[in-house]
Amino acid sequence: MKLLTANFLSCAVKACKSSPLSFPLHFKDAELASKSVPYNPVLLSNLLPRLDWPALVTSSKELGFALPDSKPDVARISTPSAASSPSDGDDTAMSMGATDEDEKTLRMLHKVLMETEVVEGKMVCGSCGFEYGIHQTVANFLLPSHLGTLSYHDRLRDTGLRYFAEDSRTCEFKI
């Protein structure tokens, strides 16, 4: 799991979704690896506006990286308008417009957000305490049945009850 991915995940328990404590999930017992990813400054500069920076700072700290307290003010790098042909190559060449300062920031972000991979470990919800395992970089967000939101059909099946369940498909409830 890349550090960047954690910025898009929150606790799968339905009641936690609205709790500010369910995001970001907190890394625990993380084994890290550095995985080489092609540098894409256009992507990074266009991602920054949509990232939750305080959450990123928290996640980074948990993995031993220090990001600046406030979101870096990096100018948006755009691809030249002539770049409509699919074969115009690498966007890296188009970061020439970035200042040295921005370039340094983007390289640092690339290393922390894109190339830091949690191979094994856990992510813990600050609201309910549930621990999501990470194994071979893949996080497991399948909740046990007693925490997951089951459809009415699933619940009837799992409890062995037989009701006349017509028109119930849209009826969901949490256990």
């Binding site: 991915t5 996080a139 997951g148």
Partner: peptide, 15 residues
């Protein structure tokens, strides 16, 4: 840029 695969029931893991 591909980030990760996540084991999830539909999109329950996402913000």
């Amino acid at each position: 840029t591909f980030l990760n695969s996540v084991t999830s029931d539909l999109t329950s893991c996402l913000r």
